[in-house]
């Protein structure tokens, strides 16, 4: 049974306001039957230092990724994971995390691959909850397992693969959400981030550079719809009916942009190319453009 959406006025303009909850809403709704709060961070230990009371943890590296193949867990794996976290198929799942919700958005996107209906983000993430002096606890919850069904992952709707990108080069808008330094080919990782083995630097030809952070306000919340419109429709020129593909380095920052384009601005067809630069930048014979211009095919 879904928990009622947050009616907060700051969400009203978004295409799908029900995809966000405010810290006020969450504080009032903690413990509501049917609500499961999930923390998903870059730092695998941050949850253990203290988390929102009752929240469970999902780690992208060790729980969402398949340990052998470079892929996500399959239907069985996801059902087992969800069950162990006390998530039922009809649970309202609210995800929050560090780094302006990068990994939270990534987890939300993976939930979407499995068609989990009601999954939302806490606007502003962990940092906002903390900045407002709200409670954290180190008490580990022990949720009762659920009978989450085995649902086959749907990789067609919101996920793009290298071959999809290659086949549609020049025909669909590509958004590169990495930093300008990565886009132009000065480096292969975000400034101050470790090397993650891409052999070449630059971007996919025709991709426009819109760093993910442009969608975020200083406090980590999403910018108002009007601001987002002027960036993505105005500057980038995206329009209704576009088949959009976003990518970054490993698919986490582009999940953030995917959330903005799909849920906040209402573009129907948005896919995240999770192979992203760690795949493209190491693949043989795929075209690469260097410099600050999108380039052509």
């Amino acid at each position: 049974m879904p928990v009622a959406a947050d009616p907060a006025p700051q969400f009203r303009d978004y295409a799908h306001p029900e995809r966000l909850v405010s810290t006020d809403w969450l504080a009032e709704n903690l413990g509501t039957p049917g609500l499961v709060v999930v923390e998903s961070d870059e730092d695998v230990l941050l949850y253990e230092t203290g988390h929102i009371p009752g929240a469970v943890k999902i780690d992208w590296h060790t729980e969402l990724n398949d340990p052998v193949n470079r892929d996500y867990v399959d239907g069985n794996g996801f059902a087992a994971l969800a069950s162990s976290k006390g998530i039922a198929r009809d649970s309202t799942v609210v995800i929050y995390g560090d780094k302006s919700n990068w990994w939270a958005a990534y987890a939300l996107w993976v939930f979407t691959l499995f068609g989990h209906e009601d999954v939302r983000l806490l606007d502003g993430g962990r940092a906002k909850w903390e900045a407002e002096g709200r409670p954290f606890t180190t008490d580990a919850p022990s949720p009762a397992p659920t009978d989450y069904p085995v649902v086959e992952r749907d990789d067609r709707r919101v996920r793009a693969f290298r071959d999809d990108v290659l086949a549609s080069l020049g025909q669909v808008p590509l958004i590169d959400v990495r930093s300008p330094e990565e886009y132009s080919g000065l480096r292969t990782t975000a400034p101050a981030y470790p090397e993650e083995s891409a052999l070449r630097a630059g971007h996919i030809p025709t991709a426009k550079n819109v760093p993910w952070v442009r969608a975020a306000a200083d406090d980590g919340t999403f910018k108002p719809k009007q601001d987002l419109e002027s960036i993505y429709r105005g500057e980038v020129g995206l329009s209704e009916g576009d088949d959009i593909i976003a990518y970054c380095r490993i698919g986490e920052r582009s999940s953030h942009t995917w959330f903005v384009l799909h849920h906040l601005l209402g573009f129907d067809k948005v896919r995240n190319y999770d192979g992203s630069w760690t795949e493209w930048g190491s693949a043989v014979r795929v075209p690469i453009t260097k410099g600050t211009e999108p380039g052509s095919v």
């Binding site: 730092d43 695998v44 230990l45 941050l46 253990e48 230092t49």
Partner: peptide
Amino acid sequence: PREAPTTRG
């Protein structure tokens, strides 16, 4: 930093 416990560890 405190908010990076893995790295601190």
